[in-house]
Design a protein around this nucleic acid. Structure first.
Length: 193
DNA sequence: TGGGTTGGGAACAATC
DNA sequence: AGATTGTTCCCAACCC
């Protein structure tokens, strides 16, 4: 997810715009993993310029905050206590399937289950014999009651085509990350390492 | 032909 | 209470 922070030192409000990279492209972009850093920076910057502490974060959200996707469209404007802002950030970091798959792909010990296809960027393929192992791990990660299978997981993968996060490649057991998703995942990974 | 794979509708659940 | 993100079930089509 992308967050745009517009600082207005000397002005009472600090504006924080959050939106989805899959909807808009933007000039100043940071990933969701950088949100806390941004918030800290914002606080410090605001403090230096106004001599006051930030106790609230203001942002646009079509009149109200869309809690899960950080999707905001146009001002103005909502306001939240900082604590709520932080807890929402933590909630947004909950693992999603495409992120989990990226983790698997970056883990050499999982190469027998799922691996990158070198021919094209962002393309990956499940092993015909071990694909259910990936699915089972995903089910475990989510704490599902019933065992996850490749068939059910692939149903979730097919839903990603609508949002452009992952596409099906016309090859057996092969999928491709959307360019924006791949960039985001790679950036997240660099941020964590 | 058959089994594995793909595609998608629909209802449902968990979470925020 | 509504949106998001799967999960589960099911059936049809495709393909090697």
């Amino acid at each position: 997810m992308v967050v745009i922070v517009l600082l207005s030192p000397g002005v009472e409000n600090v504006w924080c715009y959050a939106e989805s990279p899959f909807l808009w492209g933007n000039s100043f972009q940071e990933t969701q993993s950088d949100l806390e850093v941004i918030l800290e920076f914002l606080e410090e910057y605001y403090k230096q310029n106004t001599g006051e502490n930030v106790d609230k974060v203001y942002w646009t959200a079509n009149g109200e905050l869309c809690q899960q996707r950080w999707t905001c469209y146009e001002p103005p404007c909502g306001q939240l206590p900082k604590s709520t802002f932080k807890s929402l950030m933590a909630a947004g970091r909950k693992v999603r399937l495409y992120h989990f798959l990226f983790e698997m792909l970056e883990d050499p010990s999982m190469a027998h289950c799922v691996s990158w296809v070198p021919a094209a960027t962002g393309v990956f393929r499940f092993s015909s014999t071990n694909k259910d192992q990936v699915a089972a791990l995903w089910g475990q990660r989510k704490g599902n009651k019933r065992p996850m299978t490749y068939q059910k997981m692939s149903r979730a993968l097919r839903n990603y085509a609508r949002s452009g996060e992952i596409f099906k490649v016309k090859k057996k057991l092969t999928y491709q990350f959307g360019p924006a998703t791949l960039m985001l995942l790679q950036k997240c990974q660099r941020g964590n390492s």
